[in-house]
Structure formats: structure tokens, C-alpha cells
Amino acid sequence: MDIILGAGFFAWIGAVLYPIGKYLVPPKVAEMSVNSVEAGGISEFPPSSSKIVRFGRRPVIVFRQQNGDFHALSATCTHLDCTVQYKSDTEQIWCACHNGLYDIEGKNISGPPPKPLMQYQVVLQNDKVIVTREEMT
């Protein structure tokens, strides 16, 4: 009887400790911070390049102009929610779905988009490109 009880007890301890142990191991995915997001090292952004990063649940396009300036805009087109891209030749943001164009500030300048893209801020810190949103309080 005591043996069964002991075995059961140890099995129970195992059943409790296993999830807790697993829980304590930090997950592979870096934590999901939404106030700011690291878009990568500065070296990953040669002039005239861009990258789509996830900001919380939304995609954000981070791009570097020919002159070296960084910008970040919401990457969701305001027309039909397609994901936009950076056109390095004209230095514009382009939506491939209906050829909507935005300027580098996110203002809709051509094509069907009805509204501008939301702007994010880019902060360069220790060779890292960090995208932030202004605190909403």
C-alpha cells in the first residue's frame, strides 16, 4: 500500500514539476515586445534597402534611403490591406496590388490608397536599428 502511495506521489510530483520545468525554460522566440522592435543590425541595411519586420501583430516596413536615412512605416496598404514594398529607384513606397504609391513619409500620392501609412520612429542604438512607436498615454 505504502509503495503504491509512494509511487503515485512521485508520479504526481513529476506531473507537476514537468510543466513547471518546461515553463521555466525560456522559449526560443525572443520575447514579444511591442513598444519597440529590433529590425536588425545597421549593417543589414545598406542604402536603398528595406525589410519587413513584425511589430506586435502588424507588419512594418523599415527602409534606408540612398542618402542613408532610415524610415519605418506601417506595411499594410490602406487600400485593401496588401503589404507594401520599398521602391529604391524612385524612393517611394509601392503597393504591388493596385500600384498604390506613398512617399517616404507614408503620404499616399498616387493610385487607390485613401489614407497615408502610419509612421513609426527609427532609433539607431549600438549598431542596431530599432523601430518604436510613440507611447500612447
Binding site: 520575447e31 514579444m32 515586445s33 511591442v34 513598444n35 506586435g56 512607436r133 507611447e135 500612447m136 498615454t137
Partner: peptide, 10 residues
């Protein structure tokens, strides 16, 4: 404000 919900989701 920015992290509470996201961290719980995480």
C-alpha cells in the same frame, strides 16, 4: 500599457 497584453499573449 504596451507590454502587459502582449506579454500575457506571449
Amino acid at each position: 500599457v504596451a507590454t502587459a497584453f502582449e506579454s500575457v499573449r506571449f
